[in-house]
């Protein structure tokens, strides 16, 4: 069964049809890329999947369940934002562990998952030495934060720009 099904989704902003009758179906484990010039509706579609926007027509289904009316915080869908949107008042570890804390996981599990996830996105730099000063490091943190609570679906809004190729390949593989 498709993990995500988008059925005849249309979204208008005034006279502008940002998304016009889009249907597609994405299988579990699939790496699906939306390509197009800026302003063609990629972000609008992602925002509807994440729950920040609702379609005017059509419907979205996650593992067969309709997504309509479910707020973003209740959807097992995480987004890596274009600007990364890292919390500036939290450390790298606090940022990455945020989804686990929201899910009410206990400290032991948070520590274990944190270690696993850091190994996954940035095996050569870990723990205290890991900082988020550079763009690439920031994108790794944003990615780790998106992955750590094992969402059913991970949305990436123009994320590869700052990921170095090896890192990009590694997490694609994972």
């Amino acid at each position: 069964m498709a993990i995500l099904e988008i059925r005849n989704v249309t979204r208008r902003f005034g006279n502008l049809k940002a998304v016009d009758d889009v249907s597609l179906s994405i299988e579990a484990g699939e790496f699906f890329t939306l390509l197009g010039p800026s302003g063609c509706g990629k972000t609008t579609l992602l925002r509807m999947i994440a729950g920040f926007d609702e379609p005017d027509q059509g419907a979205l289904f996650l593992e067969g369940q309709p997504l309509a009316g479910i707020p973003p915080e209740k959807r097992p869908v995480h987004t890596v934002f274009q600007s990364y949107a890292l919390f500036p008042h939290m450390s790298v570890a606090q940022n990455i562990a945020f989804p686990l804390r929201m899910a009410g996981k206990d400290e032991d599990e948070i520590r274990r998952r944190l270690k696993e996830t850091l190994e996954l996105v940035h095996p050569q730099r870990q723990g205290a030495a890991f900082s988020a000063r550079t763009r690439a490091a920031r994108s790794s943190v944003a990615l780790a934060r998106g992955l750590i609570n094992k969402p059913r679906l991970l949305l990436l809004d123009e994320p590869l720009g700052a990921l170095d190729a090896s890192c990009a390949n590694r997490w694609k593989a994972s």
Partner: peptide, 8 residues
């Protein structure tokens, strides 16, 4: 939005 997306 990020916080909301991540479950807050």
């Amino acid at each position: 939005e990020a916080a909301q997306d991540l479950g807050a």
